[in-house]
Design a binder for these strands. Structure first.
Length: 203
DNA sequence: TGCCAGGCCCTCTTTAGGGCCTT
């Protein structure tokens, strides 16, 4: 059976989802057995203004969103694209809040768990200078994927980081990497106890 | 008007505080 994972990234108008703070763009990368096999990306218009600071950060302007498809249409397509495929994001506590909020506007809910490349990289790459997605990408020598802080480029960066974490797991601990269940368990293990946890995993 | 997150992790900790990370 093929191991599929959906790596997602949102651009938004702020930090906490709500009536005045919505998603503006989503990028999704589908991985199958360690290869990118499909992508989804769209801007979305939720009828909220993009603050100047966010426009500067992402390059996503109010003018771009005026001509973007409605948020409900985009989120329906995104949710259908992902289906029940296990999810991954960098700092998943952020993207999962927006994923859940936007799905709730459609009367839908999320059936699957999120794995988090931020939590995993803190455990498996503690020697990195920091654990920002861009820093980890440069530090690990991973490919440039486009403009940072655009959804598909960031989702591809996170996907490449996930694959790198898999290589790290195999090299250092003799464990296969992209088993979503293992990743979800590993990201909850206290950082100081990760080595012990991996040693004690059944072969 | 003024306010503005929250989970994780470390340590000069646990009766707490502050930095990290996402936009």
């Amino acid at each position: 059976m093929k191991q599929r994972l959906a790596v997602i990234d949102f651009e938004t108008t702020g930090i906490t989802p709500g009536p005045g703070c919505r998603a503006t763009e989503i990028g999704i990368v589908l991985l199958e057995d360690g290869q990118i096999v499909d992508r989804y990306q769209s801007l979305m218009n939720a009828g909220v203004r993009v603050p100047a600071m966010i426009e500067q950060l992402t390059g996503i302007s109010n003018a771009m969103l005026r001509s973007a498809p409605p948020v409900a249409q985009v989120m329906r397509e995104a949710a259908d694209f992902v289906g029940s495929t296990p999810l991954v994001a960098h700092n998943a506590s952020f993207d999962s809040k927006f994923w859940d909020y936007e799905l709730a506007q459609l009367g839908r809910s999320r059936p699957q768990a999120f794995a988090c490349t931020l939590l995993l990289s803190r455990r498996l790459l503690p020697q990195a200078p920091d654990h920002k997605l861009g820093t980890l990408t440069r530090w690990a020598g991973l490919p440039a994927t486009g403009r940072a802080h655009r959804a598909l480029a960031d989702a591809e960066m996170a996907a490449n980081l996930l694959l790198h974490l898999g290589v790290t797991l195999r090299q250092r601990h003799g464990r296969g990497a992209v088993d979503h269940g293992l990743l979800c368990k590993l990201q909850k293990v206290p950082a100081a106890k990760v080595a012990q946890y991996l040693r004690e995993l059944p072969a």
